[in-house]
Amino acid sequence: EAITDPVLQVGADSTTRNLSWMSENSGGGEVRWAPVNELEGGELPADAAAAETTDSGLATDLKRHFNHASMTDLEPDTDYAYQVGSDEDGFTEVQQFTTGSSGGDDEFLVFGDPQVGAGGGDLGVATGWERTLSTAVATADDPSFLYSLGDQVNSAGNQEQYAQYLAPEATRTIPQATTIGNHDVSSKAYEQHFNRPNVSQDHGGGGIITSGGDYWFIEDGVLFLNINSNSSDMDAHAEFIDEVVAEHGGQARWTVLGFHHSIYSTATHWNDLDVKRLRKAIPPVAARNDIDLVVSGHDHIFNRTFLMDGEGKPVEGSEAGADEAKEDGQTLYLTLTSSSGSKFYDYVPGLDWEGKSVHNDMPAFTRVRVSDEALRATTYEVP
């Protein structure tokens, strides 16, 4: 196959979908798309929309080439067909996706640490990831996107692990957003495989051979902020969050922050130096920007906090029940467990922020339903 690893991704908002793929040859890459009702015998029409790559170059394996492109001006509630490739390499088979409603009730799916390649036996882990993902898609009602909270792979430059992470069909039919984990950071492979919208050039950036970059997007009427928690420059992350919320918070009904290293986990990493640094820096930024929900991974255990305040303290009277009514400046934090089952960490009881923990070493996912009135996070395990 001349074209490999195609990934459908979120764009800056629901009118845009990003794509990335690897190609045998360099240059000439493009994405072509059209509404499904314009397909002719299953093929895209000659006058299908097309867009050239916005970024491309030699892949980290020094053999293939990475390609990024975007489909733009998409209409809501519409079935689209697309393919990526080039004249030289040929094009992928036509794939389909559906755009979401505009401002109605929506939902998205969240996954912790697929970490394909960890825990011994790549095949079992890849199978576990595929099973959780397909179960989640079957459980949800037309999820608008998939949100993976970092450590997609175990070894940052391992292309086989990326191929396994990207193998499920949903990779090509439901947009996804990713977070950069500590296992993803030490290679440019992450930046090459994923075409993220609105990546900051000045906040959370990677290095010459490492990946990084804080970024944001709006989907389901929610402003999603995504920071590279491998980067220890907390002032830069805070500036990014302050600036994006000031500029775009008014366009969204809720604000969600995602990053890899959970600051309120109930497992082994809770006392790590990098986690403690984040735990000091994030709560005041979350409070002053009225971030509603924070989602993280890293500790391979599921928990949720009480409502938390800007000093990192549980809000008095917060019960961690089925309903949480927040005042401005209060935030709920979720830590997601492994979605593949590749590994789990030991439960640490008695931490101040623990509202509820589930620590039975089962892969799980979280379904978040969005309406004007509520963000409802329902978590399921996949035995």
């Binding site: 179960t135 989640a136 079957a138 459980t139 509603d292 929900l293 599921f302 949720r304 961690a320 029940g321 089925a322 309903d323 949480e324 009514a325 927040k326 005042e327 709920l332 509820k356 589930v358 799980a364 996912f365 009135e373 509520a374 963000l375 409802r376 996070a377 329902t378 978590t379 399921y380 395990e381 996949v382 035995p383």
Partner: peptide, 13 residues
């Protein structure tokens, strides 16, 4: 089969 382990609805007070 997925089995529910948590459910929380976050609203504004």
């Amino acid at each position: 089969t997925a089995e529910q382990i948590d459910d929380v609805e976050l609203r504004r007070a």
